[in-house]
Design a protein around this nucleic acid. Structure first.
Length: 275
DNA sequence: AGGTGGACCCGAACGC
DNA sequence: TGCGTTCGGGTCCACC
């Protein structure tokens, strides 16, 4: 479940290894990865591209090439990237692609459940593509309390569903939404449009706090998530509510409860986060 | 139009 | 022990 903090950690670690390097040889091992495009054609198009920058938008990893093209990588649930010297990659039945760089190293893409996607965009296509998919960066200046209020008012969907909508704010997933709502002391099933300006402000703060903590801890390693050097994150040790049903709320001691919101397993404190 | 639920995928956890 | 069943999660899409 790579969410914004996990993708950002991957980006930060991989950027100095990729920037200025050339994709010498690309092999795509899973036909699903580039659907609906032919993986052999995409691999051939990527061969020889020079990396200008590695960026992130929401949960998307964006490889920007000197040609102006960009490769949009979405890890979905179980995608991960691993960097290693050429010839040292171990056999992995879940490897879906390998990029050999021009400095004698490989970047291997692994994805157990095969939900992840690689999309090659031509120059100029990136902005319009992302524009319809994702809202503002939660840690950027465009994500203001005012903007969030505009996105939440008149919405009847549960607060959690509204925050999982990537157009409300980019990068939140199941884990960080629960953590953010606990910080904001708001019930995940509360209708989004009923939040007062003061409560929206608390959500705004909670979202930022949860994500900043996640980045500082290099993400949460529950099962599949690894940093490109094979390391783990430690955010799982900081979870206040996620996955902690029955355990005491760190704020008031009331046992954490589990419910369902937006079709997802949802954890909250029934005392701190009243409906 | 906005909201909801199923499909996609597959290992892990669970139930008998 | 060994099997079958259920679960979960991000996003898209069909349906209300």
């Amino acid at each position: 479940m790579p969410e914004l903090p996990e993708v950002e950690t991957i980006r930060a670690q991989l950027a100095p290894l990729l920037e200025g390097r050339c994709f010498q040889r690309v092999s795509i091992l899973d036909t699903r990865l580039t659907r609906p495009h032919d993986p052999r054609e995409v691999a051939a198009e990527l061969d020889g591209e020079d990396v200008a920058a590695l960026e992130r938008r929401g949960k998307y990893l964006v490889v920007r090439f000197r040609t102006g093209r960009s490769l949009l990588i979405h890890l979905r649930m179980t995608g991960s990237l691993h960097h290693a010297p050429v010839g040292t990659l171990e056999v992995d039945p879940y490897r879906r692609a390998v990029v050999t760089l021009d400095n004698g190293s490989d970047v291997a893409y692994r994805d157990v459940r095969r939900f992840g996607t690689w999309l090659l965009l031509e120059p100029g296509e990136l902005e319009s593509y992302l524009g319809v998919k994702v809202g503002p960066e939660p840690l950027g200046s465009e994500f203001t309390t005012r903007f969030l209020r505009g996105r939440l008012t008149a919405r009847k969907a549960p607060l959690k569903a509204a925050l999982l909508d990537q157009r409300t704010v980019a990068g939140l997933g199941n884990i960080y939404v629960d953590e953010a709502l606990w910080l904001a002391r708001l019930h995940p099933l509360r209708a989004a449009g009923t939040a007062t300006p003061e409560e929206v402000r608390a959500v705004h703060r909670g979202v930022r706090r949860a994500l900043q903590t996640g980045i500082a801890r290099q993400g949460a390693t529950l099962r599949d998530y690894r940093t490109p050097d094979g390391g783990s994150g430690s955010m799982q040790d900081e979870f206040k509510v996620y996955g902690r049903a029955g355990e005491p709320c760190p704020r008031c001691g009331t046992p954490i409860e589990k419910t369902r919101a937006g079709g997802r397993g949802t954890w909250y404190c029934p005392a701190c986060q009243r409906r």
